[in-house]
Every structure is written in C-alpha cells, then in structure tokens.
Design a protein around this nucleic acid. Structure first.
Lengths: 207, 207
DNA sequence: CTATGTGAATTTATTCACAGCA
DNA sequence: TGCTGTGAATAAATTCACATAG
C-alpha cells in the first residue's frame, strides 16, 4: 500500500467504488474488472485504474481486481475500517430524514446523538436517538464523537459549527446553505441541495 | 453578455454567488466587491472575477459590481429567470423533507407534483402536494414539467429515470445512491449523501 | 488609489496509448 | 489474448501578476 498523496477527486470517487464493489460482492463475484466496475458506477475504466494505482497495485492483468481485497484496501485508505459515531445537529424535516437515512450504515456510520435548540423537540426520540439541547454540544468530546452533520437554518450554522469545533469535532457534513468558517484542521464537506438543483437549468433547453 | 462556453466548475459556483448577492441586496448594499462576496461565499476573489468574466464584463474597477445587475445576469446565465416547476418521485423520509425544503424557492423552483409507488401514500397530501401513483409519470409531459427530483431506493431509480425521460424530463436531481443511465440530452446532477459523508474520515485524524 | 479583467504561468485532473504480466 | 498500471500528452481549472479603468 502506497502512501503518496491521493488527489481530492480520487478521494471523492473512492466511496463510489466501494458501493460498486459491494454490489459485485453481493452478487457473488469474487473478481471484477475496471470496465465492469466502470459501467456500474458511471466512471470510465481508465480513470478507475488510475485512481486505484494512486495507493497501490492490486489488480491482476488479464483478470481484474479481487473484490474482497480491493474493498479492504479502499476502506483502509478512506479510514472506514472501524465504525464511526456521528452527531446530528438540527432535527427539522431534513435532519429527521437524515436520522432515518439507511445509507450511512453502508459505510459504517452511526448517528448516535442528535441536538436541536427547539424546547419542544428536546427530550423526544427520533429513530431511537434522544434529542438533546444544542447547548450541550460540549459533551461530544468525552463521548468521543468527532464527526457531525449540520442541518440547521443558515443563520444558526456558523455558531453551531463553532460549538462543534470547540467540542473537538474534526469533520462536518454541512447541509445548511452557507459557508462555514472553521480552523484549517477541521474538514467540512458541504451538500447544498438547492444550489445543486439551481445548476440544472443551465444544461436544459430554455423552457 | 458573452456566450462562449462556461466551465462546469464556474456553473457550479454561480448559484453560490446568487446566494451571496441576495444577502448583500437584503442588507441594502447596492454594490459589492469580489473580495467581500468572496468572504461570504468562501471562494477566493480572483476566482469569482474570473468566473464572472466568462460571461461578460459587469464590474466597475475601483468600485465593484452592481448587486442588482450582476444578480440579473447570473440568473440569466443559469436560466433561472422564470419560475420552474419540478416533480418529486419518492415520498419517503427524504422525499418528504425535500417537499418541505424552503431553499428551492430561493431559486424559483416549485415542487408541484409528487409520486410514490406505495398504495398507502398515494392520494395523501404532503405540503399541499397530492401524492400520485408513480405509474402516472407520463402525465408530466402535458403538465410541462421537465425537471424532476428522484428520492427512491437505489433499486428503483433507473426505472424511474427512464419513465421520467419518456415523459420528456430534461433535468434530474438524483438523491438515490446509484448511477443513472440516461440519454445524452438529459442532465443528471447527483447528490449522494452517504458518499459525501464517507470521504470525510480520509481528512480526519485516525480516531 | 482601489478593484476589475485577463493573458500567462502553474497546478490539477483526465485521457491516451501501450508495455508487460497472467 | 485480456486487462492492469503508468508514463506521456492533453485538457481543465486555478492562481498569479499587472495593465487598465474609474
């Protein structure tokens, strides 16, 4: 396993490959070629091979990749080898849907804490997770939760982000439609739903 | 207004600029410099200027950009000048949250139709939108809806996408965790929630 | 004197093309 | 012969640096 720096775009695609690998594994295939994986995930085969080559040599020429082994290696690179606990902040419509979202488990994520500032929600339970007061974000440190999902209104997001950083959170998935200013050692990945929809018309006919 | 091709990455950022512009407009600022917009949206100023220059020259050296005019121009480029109707397919947890999502309105989107294949949901109303049978996707053509949001389980997504394409849909926002195979003239933008979360640990300390 | 707009330089990402292994 | 892995070539995106306009 090689440890030179892996391009961001490659890191972005690796989880996709994991999903593809899971599909082939579940179908009982023990080997997969870059081209069949390519077809499944919608990325061209040569790009997949280049991506994989960034962290090592795992394929067999003329045959393909060993599904189980490649899965293991990709998971190691992405640091998805052990389960990760995550916290959710903001249990509105979107937050509630995220609490129930089955996709996170695929990658070993478990949302074990939820916070909201609305008195009426605090204390309630959604999907087996009890909603706590947002003022208690500080408890995340001793609970060893360093990953959080923000789904609060834009106006509240920066404050929440700062609270999370103070509590030792090192990775944030931000659904709030705003930029978060955080220290360099904290990574933010933003999913800006409306913004993604807003770029569709550009590619569509006038109507 | 210039009409040479605009880079994809620029198109991706334009909706962000719109949001920033709306912020400054609402604060009563009639002019904004690339650097102050930069600070708000988290993109460096020189990149913003380059992005804008791709479709024309709108700023005043020494002063900045006219907020109202730049807003108008960006909206025109993104084809967001008139309201757009959209359909939602899949009214589960995530779909319901999307129906209630206030952010779409910012860009003039209105979800006016919702579909699900679950008999128990069909006929019900969520957020003033009546849920129809997924088998009735074909009606979208005469209702002049050519934009759709998919939020169904992965296994059903390709079928739904094909139904949408048959109904004349030209743009799809896909929340289902899978690749969609569609004709070249249909644009798909994918939001793969778990996949985005899955790349966070790579950037985080081991824990 | 400030902030835009843009060629040039640089960096990053993608694709090509093929040597070499099973 | 089939498919990987990778240098080389190309393309795309970003950043620099500064001429230029108000």
């Amino acid at each position: 396993m090689r440890y030179r720096r892996i391009p961001d775009e490659t890191v972005r695609r690796l989880p996709l490959y994991l999903r593809g690998l899971a599909y082939f594994a579940q179908r009982g295939e023990s080997r997969v070629s870059s081209s069949s994986l390519a077809e499944f995930v919608g990325v061209n085969g040569c790009k997949i091979r280049k991506d994989i080559s960034h962290f090592g040599v795992f394929g067999t020429p003329g045959v393909g990749y060993d599904v189980a082994n490649l899965t293991r290696q990709v998971r190691k690179i992405l640091k998805l080898t052990s389960a990760r606990k995550a916290a959710l902040v903001g249990v509105g419509n979107l937050g509630s849907a995220l609490l129930a979202y089955p996709g996170f488990a695929t990658y070993g994520f478990d949302i074990v804490a939820a916070f909201d500032s609305d008195r009426r929600k605090i204390g309630r339970t959604v999907n087996k997770v009890r909603i706590e007061d947002s003022a208690a974000l500080g408890t995340l440190r001793r609970r060893r939760i360093n990953l959080a999902i923000i789904a609060v209104p834009a106006g509240a997001a920066q404050d929440i982000a700062e609270g999370l950083v103070r509590a030792g959170v090192k990775g944030i998935l931000n659904f709030s439609p705003c930029y978060l200013n955080v220290p360099r050692n904290v990574k933010v990945v933003a999913i800006d739903i409306a913004t993604e929809l807003a770029r569709l018309p550009y590619y569509m006919p006038a109507g």
